[in-house]
Computed example of a mutant assay.
Amino acid sequence: MQNSALKLQYNEHFLYNTLEMQPLVDNCVLHGFKDGIHPDHYIRINGFRSGQGYVVEVEDNGVGFQKGIAWSGVGGLSTVNHRLKLLFGDAGRIHIIENKPGTGTKVQIHLPSNHKQAR
């Protein structure tokens, strides 16, 4: 493993709930960069309004994952999905937008407008 800093990029005009974000960022570090962190690795967090709610995207350029692994019932994605369902019912959801083994993963969290995520 190279000894280097990981680039973290985020939208500073958007407030992020660590309860929802922490497992996703953990996934990036523990699984996406499981072979080590290299100078070109990054994690991007972006939030924006969409329709009647908000969207938070988390993207990395790590190793990606095999189909079926993400929703195995354990780990960051299923944890966030469970939390969203408890908090918001069907209005809160998580989607895997991109997953390219060898080039990274992007997920989106959809939140209802009453969540008060944005400033």
Rank of each mutant, 00 (worst) to 15 (best):
L6M: 08
L8H: 04
L8Y: 10
Q9G: 03
Y10A: 01
Y10S: 00
N11V: 03
N11D: 15
E12P: 12
H13N: 13
F14D: 03
L15A: 03
Y16W: 02
N17S: 15
T18P: 02
T18R: 10
T18C: 01
L19S: 15
E20R: 05
E20A: 01
E20W: 15
E20I: 05
M21G: 08
Q22W: 11
Q22Y: 08
P23Q: 10
P23Y: 07
L24Y: 12
L24W: 13
V25C: 14
D26V: 10
D26I: 10
D26W: 10
D26H: 13
N27Q: 12
N27Y: 14
C28K: 03
C28I: 04
C28G: 06
C28L: 04
C28F: 03
V29D: 04
H31D: 13
H31R: 10
H31T: 09
H31N: 15
G32N: 03
G32V: 03
G32D: 06
F33L: 12
K34T: 02
K34M: 04
D35I: 00
D35V: 00
G36N: 12
H38K: 09
H38Y: 09
H38L: 08
P39A: 09
P39R: 07
P39C: 04
D40A: 07
D40K: 01
D40M: 02
H41K: 04
H41L: 06
H41Y: 10
H41M: 09
Y42S: 12
Y42W: 13
Y42C: 12
R44A: 13
R44D: 11
R44H: 06
I45N: 02
I45Q: 02
I45D: 03
N46K: 10
N46T: 08
N46Q: 11
G47W: 02
F48A: 09
R49C: 08
R49A: 13
S50R: 07
G51Y: 11
G51K: 06
G51C: 05
G51F: 12
G51W: 11
V55A: 05
E57T: 10
V58N: 07
E59I: 00
D60I: 07
D60N: 15
D60P: 08
D60H: 11
D60Q: 08
V63M: 12
V63I: 15
G64C: 03
G64E: 01
F65T: 00
F65P: 00
Q66L: 04
K67W: 00
G68E: 10
I69N: 00
I69P: 00
W71K: 02
S72V: 02
S72H: 03
